[in-house]
Amino acid sequence: MTEEFVDYAGRTEPKERWLKALPLIVAALLGIPCLALAIMFSLSIAQVTSYIFDIGTSGLEATAMVLLSLSGAFCVIFWLAFLFIGSRRRTWKWRLWWAGAALLAAGIMPLWWLVFGYY
């Protein structure tokens, strides 16, 4: 039997692989600007947090400010994790869901700004 008739298990064409990865690639590219905004927000909150600690604050407010200053890092970690998990799924449905989750993880901070008026 010649090579053209041999079908290897689990082997796909390069064009098909790119097509299956397309939702995750789009989510990654659209997520980068959102992550940049989230990190800028985290840095500005971290600068404000140092002044709030200087004037004295309650434990709950301090915890909230520290979590807000770490929120950009959380967004990056969840974005990377969702893209990785999505890359390991075989079906279109699951890749689309994980791409949507990655995009939401990247864009949650800018959406939060718009809803609560920080922007």
Score class of each variant (00 low, 15 high):
G31L: 08
R88T: 10
Y118A: 11
S50R: 10
L35I: 10
F53H: 05
W18P: 05
A99R: 04
P23K: 06
M109L: 15
A36M: 07
P110C: 06
A64P: 03
I45M: 09
V76N: 01
P33Y: 02
T91F: 09
L24I: 08
F84W: 12
A9F: 08
W79M: 04
F74H: 09
L104S: 12
I85M: 15
F116A: 07
F84S: 08
Y119M: 09
W94A: 15
S50M: 11
K15A: 14
Y119K: 04
W92Y: 12
F5M: 08
Y119N: 08
G72L: 00
I25T: 10
A99E: 11
F82A: 15
A9N: 08
C34E: 10
D54H: 07
I55W: 14
K15G: 11
L80M: 05
S87G: 15
V76D: 03
D54F: 07
A9H: 07
A102M: 04
V26C: 02
G107K: 01
I108Q: 13
S87V: 04
T91E: 15
T2W: 11
I32W: 01
W112M: 09
L83Y: 01
R11H: 13
C75F: 00
W18M: 14
M40N: 11
A81S: 13
G86K: 01
A36T: 04
L24M: 04
L30K: 02
F116N: 08
R11M: 11
A27G: 02
R89L: 14
L104G: 13
Y118L: 10
F84P: 00
A99I: 09
L104A: 14
D7N: 10
V115D: 03
Q47C: 05
M65P: 04
I52K: 09
G10M: 01
M109D: 02
L35C: 06
F78E: 12
V76K: 00
W98M: 14
A102N: 03
I55Q: 12
W98P: 02
M40D: 12
V48E: 14
L22N: 00
V115W: 15
F53T: 08
L29H: 00
T91V: 12
M65Q: 10
G59Y: 03
K20W: 07
I39R: 08
W94V: 06
V76M: 11
E16T: 11
T91P: 05
K20P: 02
I39Y: 11
V26I: 14
E13K: 10
L29N: 00
I25H: 04
S69R: 00
I52V: 13
S87A: 14
L30D: 01
R17A: 13
R95V: 09
A106D: 05
P23G: 08
A64K: 13
W97F: 15
M40Y: 01
A81P: 00
I108F: 11
A9G: 06
F53L: 10
A101Q: 08
C75T: 04
I39C: 06
A99K: 06
E61W: 06
F53P: 00
W79P: 03
L96N: 06
A38D: 03
P14C: 00
